[in-house]
Simulated scan of single mutants.
Amino acid sequence: MNQRDEEEFAEYFAAKRDFARRTAYLLCGDWHRADDLAQTAFVALHRRWRKIRDRAATDAYLRKTLVRAAIDESRRPWRRERQVEELPEAPAGERVDDRVATRQDLLDGLRRVPPRQRAVLVLRYFEGLDVSGVAKALGCSEGTVKSQTARGLANLRDELGEEVDTHG
């Protein structure tokens, strides 16, 4: 890359590194892994920087790269969940709304949603993309986004162990 391209990339990186790290954290639920995912996404972006004609689409490319890296990372054998003989019991009758609901409850529940559904939920509800924007970012149809959203919300409700109002 020439000097001008390097300077443009450096400016973009400085402006977007917190955004990428925060999005990566929402996708994986771990700040250390989020750093790795953001780094992976920026390295991929740097490799293609000269080939990006539409600079307005750079955020979408970065977002798509983050999602793909998170999904790929979740498929690695050492990241798979381990099964146990008995599930830990929740306190009898306790629901999320019976105690102080925290952001951590939501993030913990989100972490247990399958990666593709988690990506759709993060892009829709945390990044504020509409259905067509998520479809474009993930390279799938709008119908797939809608079904993954519905399944992801249902899984999140199950993980939180309660009826959660997701329509408002």
Rank of each mutant, 00 (worst) to 15 (best):
F19R: 05
L66S: 03
K64Q: 14
L87R: 15
V96R: 14
E6I: 09
G143N: 07
E159N: 15
G109K: 09
L110F: 04
D98H: 14
R151K: 14
L129M: 14
W49E: 05
A70D: 00
A119P: 05
F126E: 13
E85Q: 13
L62C: 08
L66V: 06
L123D: 13
V67P: 00
Q117A: 15
L87K: 07
S147T: 14
D130W: 05
G29S: 04
R33Y: 03
T40V: 05
L160A: 08
E89P: 02
A90C: 11
R118L: 09
Q117T: 05
G152A: 10
E81K: 07
A60G: 07
A90R: 12
R112G: 06
L156A: 11
R82N: 02
L106F: 15
D59L: 11
R95D: 08
Q117S: 15
A15N: 04
P88G: 02
L62M: 05
V96K: 10
A154F: 04
W31P: 08
Q148C: 07
E8C: 01
T144A: 12
D35V: 09
E163M: 07
H46K: 06
I52L: 15
L110C: 04
L45W: 08
G133N: 07
E81D: 10
D35F: 10
R4I: 06
D108N: 09
P115M: 04
K64Y: 01
H167N: 07
G93A: 12
N155D: 15
T23H: 04
E6P: 01
E7S: 11
L45D: 07
G143F: 02
A135Y: 11
A38C: 11
A92W: 06
L37F: 05
D59A: 05
A34Y: 01
R80A: 10
K146S: 13
R95T: 15
S141T: 15
V67L: 00
E73S: 13
F42N: 08
W49Q: 03
D30E: 08
R22L: 03
C140N: 08
V96P: 14
E85Y: 10
L66I: 06
K51N: 10
L153W: 04
Y125R: 15
R53Q: 11
R118K: 13
T102G: 08
E81W: 03
C140L: 01
F42S: 05
E127S: 14
E142H: 05
C28K: 09
D18P: 02
A119D: 07
R33L: 09
L129R: 10
T40L: 04
R33W: 04
P115D: 12
V100W: 04
R118P: 10
R118W: 08
A44N: 08
D35R: 14
A20S: 07
T149H: 13
H46F: 11
Q39H: 09
A14C: 02
S74Q: 06
V84M: 03
G109F: 06
S141L: 04
R112H: 14
A70N: 02
V122C: 14
D54E: 13
D36N: 03
A154N: 04
A14S: 11
D105W: 10
A90E: 11
Q148L: 15
G161A: 00
D97K: 06
D36Y: 02
E127Y: 07
L121R: 07
R22T: 14
L26M: 06
V67Q: 01
A41N: 00
L27D: 02
G152H: 12
R157I: 06
A56I: 00
L153A: 01
